[in-house]
């Protein structure tokens, strides 16, 4: 009834927030991944913060990227200077592959990033890596450790509870969680689309530490798509699905946990939540995260 009263009586209208001067944060999105195929080089995206009232179109976003920084990664006895490039510089097939890996469906935006293009840095679970960034005489740094990988025991498709919805399926996985703290995140891709995370993509293992169990996973919905409560999180039968299943370092878990909580809880009963960063340096925000991932492909049968 509470919900229905709120639904029937509440109303919303645009609100003009107070204006603030430009903030001057440097935003770091840096990831270093181990996976069995070793097919994703470490990469770093640097951008600037901007006012709430800005017109955020692809050109504006393109101008936010910082292209002239010096970005170094070190670990395992090696140090590499990452190479800066923008996706418009790449031939279209490679561009699409990069997009699919980074979770970007389309390239309205000329994304610029720094990458270990020669794969000089050897990425190994348990190894600690250091990131150093210099932007216009401002210095930022961070550390991360690649967590132990935890593969799935199995992945399968099953019918959804409503017997009439015979064109839909849900995916289940079986996990044997090793003893000790682990932090998980997953992404899904359907029919060759980008690998994208669901709205709540991370979990720790505090309540299932060391256990073996089955759990269903949700199909991640592309941003801006309409959410249909009847089909939300389900997959279409006949579709080809890739599940990217990762363990994260604790800092990266905290980053996504706080960011997703902050995004999903803008409501009457919550106050603001600050995102937990691990970037050192004045006005440096963002994340340098280590992860170990497995990629699983499954073709969902028409008959289940």
């Amino acid at each position: 009834m509470g919900v229905s009263i709120l639904f029937f009586t509440s109303c919303e209208e645009p609100f003009d927030p107070p204006l603030y001067g430009d903030r001057n944060e440097v935003v770091v999105e840096a990831f270093i991944e181990w996976n069995p195929e070793n097919n994703l080089p470490p990469y770093v995206i640097l951008s600037r913060s901007f006012p709430f009232t800005a017109e955020i179109d692809p050109q504006f976003i393109g101008e936010l990227f910082i292209e002239d920084a010096e970005v170094r990664l070190s670990g395992g006895g090696k140090e590499v200077l990452l190479t800066s490039f923008c996706v418009e510089d790449l031939p279209p097939p490679i561009r699409e592959e990069v997009g699919a890996q980074l979770g970007i469906d389309s390239f309205f935006v000329n994304l610029c990033l720094y990458i270990d293009i020669q794969r000089d840095l050897e990425v190994q679970p348990g190894e600690t890596y250091q990131l150093e960034i210099e932007v216009e005489e401002r210095k930022f740094q961070s550390l991360t450790t690649i967590p132990r990988p935890v593969p799935l025991d199995s992945l399968w498709a099953a019918p959804v509870p409503d017997p009439k919805a015979d064109s839909l399926a849900q995916l289940f996985l079986r996990l044997s969680d090793p003893a000790g703290p682990d932090y998980y995140r997953y992404f899904t891709s359907v029919d060759g689309g980008a690998l994208i995370p669901p709205l709540t993509s991370v979990t720790d293992d505090n309540i299932f530490d060391g256990q073996q169990f089955n759990v269903s996973i949700l199909k991640a919905e592309p941003r801006g798509s309409e959410i249909d409560p009847a089909t939300f999180g389900y997959f279409k039968r006949g579709s080809s699905v890739v599940l990217k299943w990762c363990t994260l370092d604790e800092d990266q878990f905290n980053f996504w946990e706080t960011l997703e909580f902050s995004r999903n809880n803008q409501g009457p009963f919550s106050s603001y939540t600050l995102v937990s960063y691990n970037i050192e340096g004045e006005d440096g925000i963002g994340i340098f995260g280590g992860q170990s991932c497995y990629y699983y492909s499954i073709l969902i049968p028409m008959e289940l």
Partner: peptide
């Protein structure tokens, strides 16, 4: 309330910087 003083992009989508 705590105002939003700026935004930044993570994975291409805005996140808030609070004042």
């Amino acid at each position: 309330y705590t105002p939003i003083e700026g935004l930044y992009l993570i994975n291409g989508f805005p996140a808030e910087i609070y004042g």
